[in-house]
């Protein structure tokens, strides 16, 4: 059985910040919160994907993406749902490093073996599997910052849809976007 968390925190309550962002406050944020149906579908496809043997380094593309989604749920949280953005990020990660899908598969195996969750993940990898230690940061940079690759190879794949912007979309606009008409920032954020 694969432990893919639903959009709840580890105590089983629905994450309040997710709920807060789901209120229609006119911010017009285009990213809807994941419905349980979507996550369940993801879980099912992950389970289906795991029936494919992982022994070979070549993973079927769908399985690679599903693995990526499963890891994303842990690393980037419940907002990291399947969709056009997820496909873009996965394709970019794979292009930046052709072995990404395979490494992601190895990481997911480890996660399930050791029952790792988001809070213990990096520590565990640093301690016991340094060859995978860089992977969560790459997934996190992709989802939270929309950036894939490093140094000269770094590429922006998303900006407004990056989760770092989405998480605060009820209060802020990403830089370069107008907050509102003149003086609209003087009021207390509500």
């Amino acid at each position: 059985m694969y432990d893919v968390p639903a959009p709840m925190d580890t105590n089983g309550r629905v994450d309040e910040t997710c709920q807060a962002a789901a209120r229609d406050d006119g911010s017009g944020s285009p990213i809807a919160l994941p419905s349980r149906r979507t996550v369940l579908a993801g879980m099912v496809s992950v389970i289906a994907a795991t029936l494919i043997p992982r022994a070979s380094a070549e993973v079927a593309p769908n399985a690679g993406r599903d693995t990526f989604l499963a890891l994303s749920a842990i690393i980037a949280g419940p907002r990291a749902v399947d969709g056009p953005l997820a496909r873009r990020l996965f394709d970019a990660l794979q292009e930046d490093d052709p072995s990404f899908a395979a490494s992601a598969g190895a990481l997911l195996d480890l996660v399930n073996e050791q029952h790792l969750d988001s809070s213990g993940l990096q520590q565990a990898l640093d301690a016991t599997h340094p060859e995978l230690a860089a992977l969560p940061r790459r997934v996190a940079s992709a989802w939270f910052m929309g950036i894939v690759g490093k140094d000269e190879k770094a590429r922006c794949v998303a900006y407004e849809s990056a989760l770092g912007s989405v998480i605060v979309a009820d209060r802020l606009r990403p830089p370069t976007y107008a907050y509102g008409p003149y003086a609209s920032w003087a009021a207390q954020p509500a």
Partner: peptide, 14 residues
């Protein structure tokens, strides 16, 4: 990200 904070904890701290 440098600190290795992920998931719901990331959102809360951000």
């Amino acid at each position: 990200i440098d600190e290795g904070v992920y998931g719901a904890e990331f959102e809360r701290r951000l």
